[in-house]
Nucleic acid binder design. Structure first.
Lengths: 166, 166
DNA sequence: AGGTATTCGTTGCGCGTGCAACAACTTCCT
DNA sequence: AGGAAGTTGTTGCACGCGCAACGAATACCT
């Protein structure tokens, strides 16, 4: 009686695979991601009017040399399609927090550049966001576990990235 | 010269927070999730016609007693809204892989129940999916790391869940 | 040089999702 | 019993994203 059901035994073979460690890890990755993202989203829109996705863009720009990034590079960093990023930057630009600037050495390309308004928005939203994450993530994991989690996720991400080049 | 930029120093304070370990972990969670999900999606639709989300539903139903689950419970397990789940089940039901059944002891409720066709679809898609995940995830992490990742993610998920009850 | 292939960013389109509002039903309270 | 409050699942609506196709510019190749 491996499984307590009252169903025909030819429905059983699937069950052998269901608790495969990879399936389990995959599920946890999705569930943890959704859970964390949803509450973070909510918390953030309670204390600020900057959506999480915008914050992702602003943070990446802020930490880049010249506080600007090529559109395509930003898309890769954000793990999203270039078309998705185009609209995202459209919205942030409409809010004045980012500016598109022609790329000097490649006339096809554009830089997304942080504006003063963007820096202000970031400075206004970031502390609250960090505090939220400290409660949400830091409340579940101690410093060592957090570091280990980050290491494993980065490893996973990198492996997928270079075994499936764009 | 903590940061190699040529910008006014009043843009600096943000940088102090940007490499906060929680921000970093949050970023990795999102990036690893997107990366893994996207390639898995692609691989799956190459060898099967079952979308990943469907597989999530089928797997959860298959491992549940009676191979059926209340809609609301399924929504919670899937980390999605009940309205999102309604449409998702609509689609899977239209494909004949799931059947809605009235709930005997609560006339508001419904069970989503796996059909034979659903079991067949699952049996057809699961082996390939597991093989994909073995290459994608197993290629990046050994068995111990995988177990540790799963443990940390589950912990994170659970903490978020019960510190933010529905 | 000149043509082909590739890359960059944008657009039309469709799809899947969450939110708010709703009707049907249950639970609780007095 | 009977009414208020909560729960369950569905719908209208809008939003954000990916895919495919496109024009523009660059890289390659002979």
């Amino acid at each position: 009686m491996a499984a307590p059901t009252d169903l025909p035994t030819d429905a059983r073979p699937v069950e052998d695979v269901q608790d495969d460690p990879h399936i389990e890890a995959f599920g946890m990755l999705i569930e943890a991601h959704n859970e964390v993202l949803h509450v973070t989203q909510r918390q953030l829109e309670a204390t600020s009017d900057v959506p999480v996705a915008w914050l992702g863009v602003l943070i990446r720009l802020a930490r880049s040399p010249g506080q600007r990034l090529r559109m395509s590079e930003l898309a890769r960093d954000m793990t999203m399609s270039t078309s998705g990023l185009t609209r995202l930057v459209d919205r942030i630009e409409a809010a004045g927090q980012v500016r598109r600037e022609a790329c000097p050495e490649d006339r096809r390309g554009f830089h997304a550049a942080l504006t003063d308004e963007g820096r202000a928005a970031l400075a206004g939203a970031l502390p609250g966001h960090v505090a939220d994450l400290e409660r949400t993530i830091g409340g579940a994991l101690d410093a060592d576990e957090l570091a280990e989690l980050t290491r494993l996720l980065r490893r996973l991400r990198d492996h997928v990235r270079d075994s499936h080049p764009v």
